[in-house]
Design a protein around this nucleic acid. Structure first.
Lengths: 353, 353
DNA sequence: CTGAAAGCGCTTACAG
DNA sequence: CTGAAAGCGCTTACAG
């Protein structure tokens, strides 16, 4: 742990050691054919010996490219979409960035209302070559400002209002219809409740619409209601307050995410109702929680890591070819059957024998 | 979404618009008293009008400071410490960085064995003014190389082998002793099992030692055994295979983290044993999971977000004063009583009435 | 083919 | 007090 601060070793130092010009060193290190093999050899040896590390600032200034991408997390999102979602996204982005030796910058908004937004941080620093935006709110004007600033941008999620922006997502509507029909068709549920996410996010709107489409498709037989939540566990529980359950109430609940489903599960328990026996429930996301509860929560598995990885790859392509036309990728989701819907337990459980 | 790429607006452009030198614009924008209020006013107006955004690369090159800090996540750690831990850390780092308008760079190792390590990425890019290292393995030589490279470094966790490094942590040993004694003293458990984390991490070593100290303090009355795990849910379950339980076996298990406790809980259930009735269990971390299981897992709450925030603050101080002496911060942890140890449930549950 | 200058966009130390 | 040059460390376009 010696580490006293020494002056940075630069190209010049390496050049002097070898007896060539800095330009030659630069070319040698980047493998230019202009430099003879033997000189390149000596340059590399000298660079290693001196512990030369190129200055990213100088390189960025000269080449007008920082080699970094930013992951923008609008303030609300951090709360709205939760830790697990974000970690999957970060993992996907990092793995794509690592493959290209790019840096990943995470830009969040200040927690207090004061301070810059995550967007402003990225735009004002010009320190990233492009930006990824995770699940912004519907009509968030910052996205347009970001794109208008000339920075390549790829959005994670669905943004029908921004058809000119590149984005990667999955079909929340179909998925929500699918999981709702699972309750109706496979489990014969007839009195359904849907608890939405925050309706200023497209995801919530789409999941609600999927629920409603499933209900309409079986219209004559189904009673349905919708209550607004905000993706938080508490809102899942609160949605059930004042709602009548049991014989006279709902026999199935479609929560727009797993956190709310878990809140709902606890609320049901407090009301003395069992799931799935009294009320079947399903969630959405499958980021981990739904597997740990008892009963396990039937849900829609969503490929968040892949989403992010692909978005990052699209962003790199956009940085390379800024004039390319916008892209759209749609990923597959899948139904994960656990016990909360009434399906049999997958892993065998032997009660004490 | 117009956003066709235009040449960057520079200080020169602003200077020409106003009719002063670039140097004057620079000073005006940084609020130098050398510039008159009226000129500063005109400069700011012109800058806003032109959409001037300073070049972070030029600023970094000139001032020899990037305004970014790196959060280094060694490859293994990502798996070892899990998503929740890391998200808490990232949240803490971001909030400290936002307060100082610093950028946060997340550096992970490539998932494949090929490619650079997270350390190398940071050292080789010189794109951060300092680095935070989350929970590296014991004897990880990269930490010393990082510090020797002259980069200010603050470590998250305990590193007795690196007494000269600044670090922030909490006392795993005492905490583990405390939670073990909870089982012994408050719940009268006498045949205890400890499932460790990966023993190449100081955290695991300390938690094991805390367990053993508690056992020794009640030596004559306690039977104790230790099994090695790796913090994964599966290893928590595997630790119980081949172990005898029930009347002839253990009546209490101290898991070194919550994920393993959850794995253990499921394994017990498969064996037909109930918790806490047949076997009391406790975990460690309280990052979320332990609250969602049934029964809830009694655990040690660990302030990971605060850890990271303080570490980032120490790092900024170190960047400012590289010659300052190393610092050490110790944070408080607390016991969270849930049901898995035998404590009564906190939230009231009315079973169907 | 090769050598050495120009310049990326800033900020600050210097000259006047 | 103020103006304008020097220079941070690179890379590439240019001159020879």
């Amino acid at each position: 742990m010696a580490g006293r601060a020494t002056r940075n070793v630069t190209l010049r130092d390496v050049a002097e050691r070898v007896g060539v010009t800095p330009a030659a060193v630069s070319m040698a290190l980047s493998g230019s054919p202009r430099i003879s093999a033997s000189t390149a050899e000596r340059v590399k040896a000298a660079a290693a010996e001196l512990g030369y590390v190129p200055s990213s600032a100088a390189k960025a200034l000269r080449s007008q490219r920082s080699g970094a991408i930013a992951l923008i997390v609008p303030n609300s999102t951090q709360h709205v979409f939760g830790h697990s979602y974000f970690m999957h996204v970060l993992t996907g982005v990092s793995s794509a960035a690592n493959e290209r030796d790019a840096q990943v910058l995470v830009s969040t908004s200040a927690s207090e209302a004061s301070g810059l937004t995550a967007y402003e941080r990225v735009m004002r620093s010009r320190t990233a070559d492009g930006a990824l935006v995770t699940s912004a709110a519907i009509g968030d004007r910052n996205i347009e400002r970001l794109a208008a600033s000339g920075l390549p941008v790829v959005l994670l999620g669905n943004y029908p209002d921004l058809p000119d922006a590149s984005s990667v997502g999955w079909d929340d509507l179909s998925a929500s219809r699918m999981v709702t029909e699972h309750l109706i068709v496979d489990h014969g549920k007839r009195r359904l409740l849907h608890v939405t996410g925050p309706l200023d996010h497209q995801t919530s709107v789409d999941r609600r619409e999927g629920f409603l489409q499933a209900v309409r498709a079986h219209g004559q037989e189904i009673d349905a209601a919708v209550v607004e939540g905000d993706f938080s566990e508490d809102s899942g529980a609160a949605a059930l307050d004042g709602t009548s359950f049991g014989d006279a109430g709902y026999d199935g609940i479609v929560f727009a995410n797993d956190d709310m489903a878990f809140g709902g599960l606890q609320a049901l328990r407090r009301k003395g109702l069992r799931s799935p026996e009294d009320v079947a429930i399903v969630g959405f996301d499958d980021f981990g929680l739904s597997r740990t509860t008892d009963p396990g929560i039937t849900t829609v598995h969503v490929p968040a890591e892949e989403l992010a990885r692909i978005a990052a790859e699209r962003l790199f392509a956009l940085i390379e070819h800024p004039q390319g036309s916008p892209t759209r990728d749609d990923l597959e989701v899948s139904l994960v059957r656990r016990e909360s819907c009434g399906c049999p337990r997958q892993d065998v459980v032997l009660l004490r024998d």
